[in-house]
Write a protein that binds this DNA or RNA. Structure first.
Lengths: 337, 337
DNA sequence: ATGAAAGCGCTAACAT
DNA sequence: ATGTTAGCGCTTTCAT
């Protein structure tokens, strides 16, 4: 475990002052061609690598972002992560990632760590509607861009999709196919994506005069929950002719429940969902969905954050709202009878 | 952008020396109950958060790991990533992640950045068989655990699956179903997982006296490549009765090519693959595969790395080789005729 | 175009 | 149980 060379070692070897080495490395300030060459040789000979901890301590920037999602394992967030990393690395930034599992406690704990690590900015999929972690980061001068979900009473940048509109269009499509008894299988209340998608469902139903048929089953954004709630929905009387899963895991849980119940889709029942699965993972996608441009969301969010880091005076409170794309596939069809 | 309080501010407020504050924060050394209380109050009042850059500079540890994969978007690596993060965060470490897209250049570039950032250790899925980045990290005293792939002529820890054995068992299964003309659609030569899986295929074939029927089409680990090579395989005369895709993306590309060619699986042709898709993502998995315990690999690799960080004298060169699980599903059946 | 001195925020080593 | 001093490796400021 030999000591690594530092900027002073390089300076000595090159016969210059440390600050000169610094100027050469960071291409800041002047340096004659001859000096630059001497320094670069010394660096190569010693195998010197700049210590960015020391640098960060001094200049108060780390070129590090953090991405906090609920679960990187959800392909929607995986794609966001990839978009974030691509945009960040292109700009010379590195990304720390964190999974909160929808737990506010973990989110707060990570916020603390990220302040300690002096990250330059945070991309956050908020686990809940509490503003605590966003505020905490703000108090420590760390800008935050929210992804996917809003948080009430907080002003930060947000990059998300129009969940209300997406759900509305999706449900409207199914209503136009003739369905009147549509049950929504939703994530938790209080999470904006859940609430917005339920709201879109309600608007479409009411608009079609189906306000009396509203039925929302709340749970969590998991496959297991989709499975259970679908079974619950099937036990209803009258039995719904269509089910709406408000995220990808829920939809897959629903599909599995239907399969296990021996029901064919869409012959026996129609299923629609939010979020598409990446085409790289599915041979024959059958689900009719409102698809979100996840990769693009990641890129845009990272770029917005980086812009806020470089330009001091962006207008406050940018909210980028992207449309969802309705993709009609085989899982939706006219109701039985 | 007000100045954040530092340890000196806290010390003054609590009426103690900075080092005492340090001892309280890090629970190192003694501190009387009264002092501890004063310090904690001062911290709360000022909203002090420790600066881990300064700390890291001093103690020469950052509590940061890096995970370098080829593409986080591949669910196999996503699961690894999740395993790594779970194990790391449990131990108080944070994870930086990087995508190399199978490019050696990107891998080397990231190695440089990670040394600059003074990460404590690196988990690496090597993009190629060149030892350069592992060596570079080693020279800078950063331990590396390789995941998924071996690199020749390098001694580090490795956590991977037995690709040769997995492929052997998979191909053997298909041979026992009666297939004699099996074509392997492989990733690039020189990547250990590719080479090992091809080797397993070859062993099974030769053992069954099918040494003359060996046929391997090489490409890259992408869906597009699986698609193209499958079409190439279908054009062969005689046409193979079974195709073996050596990773998940290849297999899905193969399945799509078969679908587009109007061929039914397994009635018209059998398909086997390496890597399973997470059950959270697929309603009806049909592919017969050799499944790797990706999440577990991530956990084990991170734990091994952390162990190496804490205990100086682990035996050199740990190589953890996990078995794959053969999962027989509908994509494999007896050959036509 | 280059350098000297000071300090970013923290803790190891050595007092007391 | 607590404090003093020095220094981790770098860059800002102010010279020359």
């Amino acid at each position: 475990m030999k000591k690594m060379p530092n900027i002073i070692d390089v300076a000595k070897r090159a016969g210059v002052a440390p600050i000169t080495v610094s100027r050469v490395i960071n291409k800041s300030g002047y340096a004659s061609e001859a000096t630059r060459k001497k320094v670069e040789e010394a660096i190569a000979e010693l195998g010197y690598v700049q210590n960015s901890l020391a640098r960060g301590l001094r200049i108060k920037r780390t070129n590090t972002l953090a991405l906090v999602v609920t679960d990187i394992t959800n392909p929607f967030f995986t794609l966001i992560a990839r978009g974030v990393e691509d945009a960040a690395s292109k700009a010379g930034y590195t990304v720390i990632y964190c999974n909160t599992d929808e737990s506010e406690e973990k989110e707060i704990s990570y916020s603390n760590i990220l302040v300690q690590k002096q990250v330059d900015g945070v991309l956050l999929v908020p686990a809940c509607s509490s503003p605590q972690s966003v505020r905490f980061l703000g108090q420590n001068n760390i800008p935050v861009v929210l992804i996917d979900r809003r948080v009430p009473d907080i002003h930060t940048d947000v990059v998300r999709c129009d969940s209300e509109e997406g759900a509305y269009n999706l449900v409207k499509l199914v209503i136009e196919l003739g369905h009147r008894n549509i049950v929504t299988i939703s994530g938790p209340q209080g999470v904006s994506t859940s609430d917005d998608r339920v709201a879109g469902y309600q608007r479409a139903m009411k608009e079609a005069g189906l306000g009396d048929n509203l039925n929302v089953l709340y749970g969590s954004f998991t496959q297991a929950c989709g499975y259970d709630l679908a079974n619950q929905a099937l036990a209803l009387n009258p039995r719904p002719t269509a089910l709406f899963g408000t995220n990808n895991f829920l939809s897959i849980g629903i599909m599995k429940a239907l399969r296990d119940a021996g029901m064919r889709v869409p012959e026996d029942i129609t299923v629609i969902g939010f979020d598409d699965l990446p085409e790289t993972m599915v041979v024959d996608p059958i689900l009719t969905v409102a698809a979100q441009p996840a990769y693009k969301m990641g890129v845009l969010a990272a770029e917005l954050l980086l812009k806020r880091l470089s330009e001091k005076m962006l207008p406050e409170n940018q909210e980028i709202i992207l449309p969802t794309e309705i993709i009609e596939r085989q899982s939706s069809g006219p109701p039985l009878g």
